[in-house]
Design a protein around this nucleic acid. Structure first.
Lengths: 246, 246
DNA sequence: CCAGGATCAGCAGCCAGCCCGACACGCCCT
DNA sequence: AGGGCGTGTCGGGCTGGCTGCTGATCCTGG
């Protein structure tokens, strides 16, 4: 059980929301420059927007012309099918960039994701064109964006790792660990995932069904690995949970 | 069947390898500046490296200090488990950036993926620190990187879409379409995926088993949707294939 | 150039995990 | 108080994973 505590730390500590430069400040010089939030805020003119839980931020088909930076809360990106089915492509945590499609080319393009506020959300937004101009004028802005996108890529790839697990039990465990990393707050009993997650929402994120999630979560609870209180999941010991892979 | 031909075009045309500015040139001004390849090449000193099929580019645990730009061929990023199992997190196509972890912070960090040449590979690499300096000196470099990473994110997220499909048949179909987009070359009979794919490799990428892939690919072939000749898969009509979702 | 080994493809049978459909209960919000 | 949403449960049925084997193909080294 060597390294248990070290391993543990991997799953806690979301970036403290208000901290300046929370998106990994550049190594070496502490970069006295403005943070990404400040940059985008200055480009937008406004000091930010608040969106209520469940409201849509953009629909598929909307023109993609703004960049978003999530300040507080969680945003769900999902793909919608004709069948009405909706699968979750990403659950974004604080300080995540999204709407990057608009950065890609100068051409007008359309959103193909549905972005909805998964909790009450605070965010700042700016037109992609302004962002580009800002980069040209101040290279450090480019660096900040680069770091934001890099961390998005790593996040997304761990999600792929989760989804390639064959059996649903492993998938669920892996997903819970991801959530601990991204939304976990450490408490006395363990790490609590700071989201109101319905079984249905979990199912849509990992490609399963509500019933299966209910059963598997029940198993985990019976085995004393997690606790669920009013839709909030607490993982007692991530390291023990991680041993649950089949 | 309106839009069939338009839909078709979504699946062809890999970025022509030698073309300058193949990573989506900025809209508007044709940006007379250097391309990303040229930038990285100049930072590395060398004109590029060639890696033989099957050789490792970096191992998990290696220090992450360089950035890679794939010029030709395909690279597989995978996660390795103690059990010996290996799951594919991404199949990178030409002009993809990887090793982005090294961009993230100034801290020394370690790779956690295994990167291996899936085909014979040509690539250019540069130390992350040099890349950062280059961005500070020339903001257009930042823009180029940004576009590279944005497209990487979109690629990765379509992979997630693939993996959330419940039944293996749908997953496989979806994966084949992704491969057509990333590695397809249009021919007379349809689109050929320019990779030597073993059933095992496909299984590792979409979280299935070799046997199942064999069976499902056999079904697709019997139904006249694909053709397989010495490990190269040809999709006759992507649009027809896309109707195969269950 | 050929021989041998290694990797890959294909087939069958067995069994379990999980999807589906349905239903009842409890909690929250209005 | 009521409606809607979320949770818990049960069986039936089938997809797809696992084992074991055979033949084909590719690659390599003598």
């Amino acid at each position: 059980m060597v390294g248990a505590t070290r391993g543990f730390s991997r799953y806690a500590s979301p970036p403290s929301p208000g901290a300046p430069g929370a998106v990994a400040t550049m190594g070496g010089a502490p970069s006295a420059g403005p943070t990404l939030v400040e940059v985008i805020r200055s480009l937008s003119g406004s000091s930010g927007e608040t969106i209520e839980r469940g409201k849509t931020i953009f629909f598929p088909g909307d023109p993609a012309e703004r960049v978003y930076l999530l300040r507080r809360g969680a945003v769900r990106l999902s793909r919608v099918y004709e069948s009405g089915e909706e699968i979750t492509v990403a659950l974004l945590r604080e300080n995540s960039l999204f709407g990057v499609l608009s950065l890609l080319t100068g051409q007008r393009s359309d959103r193909f994701y549905h972005a909805v506020a998964f909790t009450r959300v605070e965010m700042v937004t700016a037109p992609a064109t302004s962002v580009r101009r800002a980069i040209e004028q101040d290279a450090s802005v480019g660096l900040l964006l680069l770091q934001g996108l890099s961390s998005r890529i790593l996040q997304t790839e761990t999600m792929i790792e989760t989804l390639t697990h064959r059996d649903m039990s492993s998938r669920l465990v892996s997903f819970l660990l991801v959530l601990c990393r991204d939304f976990g707050v450490a408490g006395q009993e363990g790490i609590t995932i700071d989201l109101r997650l319905s079984h249905q929402a979990i199912a849509e994120a990992i490609g399963s069904t509500r019933v299966t999630i209910t059963r598997l979560l029940g198993d985990l609870r019976n085995d004393g690995l997690v606790q669920i209180d009013r839709k909030k999941i607490t993982v007692f010991d991530p390291v023990a949970l991680a041993k649950r892979f089949s």
